[in-house]
Amino acid sequence: MGFKLLSKLLVYLTASIMAIASPLAFSVDSSGEYPTVSEIPVGEVRLYQIADGVWSHIATQSFDGAVYPSNGLIVRDGDELLLIDTAWGAKNTAALLAEIEKQIGLPVTRAVSTHFHDDRVGGVDVLRAAGVATYASPSTRRLAEVEGNEIPTHSLEGLSSSGDAVRFGPVELFYPGAAHSTDNLIVYVPSASVLYGGCAIYELSRTSAGNVADADLAEWPTSIERIQQHYPEAQFVIPGHGLPGGLDLLKHTTNVVKAHTNRSVVE
């Protein structure tokens, strides 16, 4: 069995187990497998329904001669939608809004960016022009300005110390501490036991640490421990890039980060 097929099978099995364990909360999309990078042309966006009122959005972007996937989250909030992270750029984010209108038909009224990198804030200006209120932590807003990236308009308070959590509509926002970046936030959907790890969490097929220019490698494993301790009931975990899975993604990420750190020390 090929690795790609095995990865998709694991996603399907995880979703099936969740649907059985929580039949009222989960209505997993039966329309197909989780979209992969090879299936999404740059400039297009796919939506994948995880649970009743919960979707991931998947886009792709060219970077350094390669094409990478990027995940975000959409959560229903009454007759409105909360968006977590842009679709990595203005063109993708405009396509995301169009796809949401086509498939869901509810307005996106608020959006949260989970850290300051372009795959999370690139497209904020498109959201703002569409009347979406954009939010991020003060740290993310400051770092985005320093980096020359787009800056969300509103500040999220109460997320300055490791372990801080605040309720934001249908989700809980959690600051686990520094990891992929010093400002990275985690998003949890309690009604569906869905954990969105953003770039602080890796997919299972990833074996290298990737972009760690703004990471705190020493603190990252401790931050992941905080996530595990705060959300032990999480059933569906979405990484910032690639295929979702279960809580095993947290341990896998820790292993990859520690291996990278150990290699760096040896070198």
Rank of each mutant, 00 (worst) to 15 (best):
D79P: 10
Y48W: 10
W88P: 00
T86S: 14
E44L: 11
T86N: 02
D248K: 10
F26T: 08
I224A: 05
T14R: 08
P69S: 12
A130W: 12
V257D: 00
R76E: 10
K258A: 12
V237S: 01
R46S: 12
A215E: 09
S162W: 13
D52A: 09
Y188F: 10
A19L: 11
L127Q: 01
L6E: 06
D183S: 00
D118E: 10
L156Y: 02
G169Y: 04
I84G: 02
R110A: 14
P232M: 10
E225H: 11
P107D: 08
T222Y: 10
R76L: 10
L143K: 14
S181I: 00
V75L: 12
L82H: 04
G163A: 08
P232S: 12
Y175E: 01
D119M: 01
Y12H: 12
A165D: 09
A94G: 13
T60S: 08
P138R: 09
Q49H: 15
P221M: 11
D118N: 05
V257C: 06
G210M: 10
Y68V: 09
S162C: 10
A234D: 01
D79A: 14
A21W: 09
V171F: 01
G2D: 15
L6N: 05
S113P: 04
I201V: 08
E233R: 13
A178Y: 08
S7K: 14
N211Q: 12
V28I: 09
A95V: 13
S161L: 14
G131A: 10
H260A: 08
V67H: 15
N262T: 06
Q103S: 14
P176I: 02
V121T: 06
S16G: 07
A209L: 12
E147K: 14
D79L: 15
T261H: 15
F116I: 04
I238W: 04
Y34F: 06
S27G: 08
S7H: 13
S137E: 03
Q235R: 08
G32K: 15
S162H: 09
S161T: 10
M1G: 05
Y175D: 02
V189I: 06
L247T: 07
F236W: 06
D52H: 06
Q103L: 15
P170Q: 09
G78A: 10
P221T: 12
H260S: 10
S193W: 09
D214T: 15
M18W: 06
G89H: 01
E147M: 06
F236R: 07
N71G: 04
D119W: 00
R141D: 01
G123C: 03
L143I: 11
D183W: 00
Y135K: 00
A165P: 06
E267T: 13
V132K: 03
A130M: 15
L83E: 04
S22Y: 15
F26N: 07
E44M: 10
T261G: 08
E219N: 06
V265P: 15
T14S: 12
P221N: 09
S38W: 09
S208E: 12
L10C: 11
R128V: 07
R128D: 07
D125T: 08
P221E: 12
T109I: 15
E99N: 05
Y175K: 02
T14K: 14
I74D: 03
K102Y: 09
A192V: 07
T86C: 07
E145R: 12
P176F: 00
V132W: 03
G246H: 06
V37Y: 09
G43A: 13
S30L: 08
S193H: 05
V11I: 06
V67S: 06
D118F: 15
I224D: 01
W88H: 00
V54Q: 03
G89N: 13
I74F: 04
D29C: 08
D79Q: 13
G163I: 06
A130S: 08
A59N: 11
A136R: 03
L24N: 08
G148C: 04
T93D: 00
I227H: 01
G163T: 07
T60V: 11
S70M: 15
V67D: 08
S38D: 06
Y202T: 09
S139E: 09
H115T: 00
I40R: 10
P170L: 05
A94Y: 09
I40C: 07
Y175T: 02
E39N: 06
L47V: 10
E39M: 11
L97I: 04
E150W: 05
S162D: 14
N71A: 08
A130L: 14
A215S: 12
K102L: 14
G32R: 09
D248R: 06
G43N: 12
A66N: 11
L143V: 04
S62L: 12
Y188E: 01
D77S: 08
P138Y: 15
V266H: 14
G122K: 15
S193F: 07
T153G: 12
R120H: 04
S30D: 08
L249S: 03
T253P: 00
S208Y: 14
A165Q: 08
G43E: 09
R46Q: 07
A87I: 00
T93Q: 01
M1A: 03
D119I: 01
P239D: 00
V75S: 03
N262D: 10
A165Y: 14
S162E: 13
S161P: 04
E150D: 12
R167Y: 06
V194W: 01
G163L: 07
L83K: 01
T254W: 07
S113G: 08
H260V: 09
P176Q: 02
L159I: 09
V237H: 00
A95S: 11
F116A: 15
L96Y: 00
E145S: 13
G123T: 03
V189L: 06
H115P: 01
I74G: 02
V187G: 04
S208T: 13
S31I: 06
P221W: 10
G240C: 00
C199T: 02
Q103Y: 10
A25M: 11
K8H: 13
V124E: 04
G242Y: 01
T182A: 06
F26D: 15
H115F: 00
E99A: 15
E33R: 08
S56Y: 08
A213T: 12
I20A: 12
I201K: 00
I20W: 09
E225L: 15
H57F: 04
F174V: 04
I224Q: 00
T134N: 02
R226H: 07
G65N: 07
A259K: 09
W55I: 02
S113T: 14
L96D: 01
K4Q: 15
P35H: 14
A66S: 07
G72W: 01
I224R: 01
P176S: 03
N149S: 08
L195K: 01
L106S: 10
R76S: 11
K251P: 07
S161C: 12
R141Y: 03
A259N: 05
P138T: 15
R128M: 15
G131T: 07
V146L: 12
D125K: 14
L47K: 01
S62P: 05
N255R: 10
R226G: 05
G2K: 11
S139A: 12
Y231E: 01
G89A: 03
G122W: 12
P138F: 07
P152Q: 02
H252Y: 04
P107A: 11
H241Y: 04
A19W: 13
G197I: 01
L81W: 01
A259H: 05
S162P: 15
H154V: 15
Y135I: 02
P244G: 06
S27H: 06
D77Q: 06
H154C: 05
T182M: 08
L127K: 02
E267Q: 06
P152N: 02
A215K: 15
S70R: 02
N71Q: 07
E150V: 08
E80D: 12
T153W: 07
E219S: 14
I74S: 03
A179P: 02
L217Q: 08
E147A: 14
A178R: 09
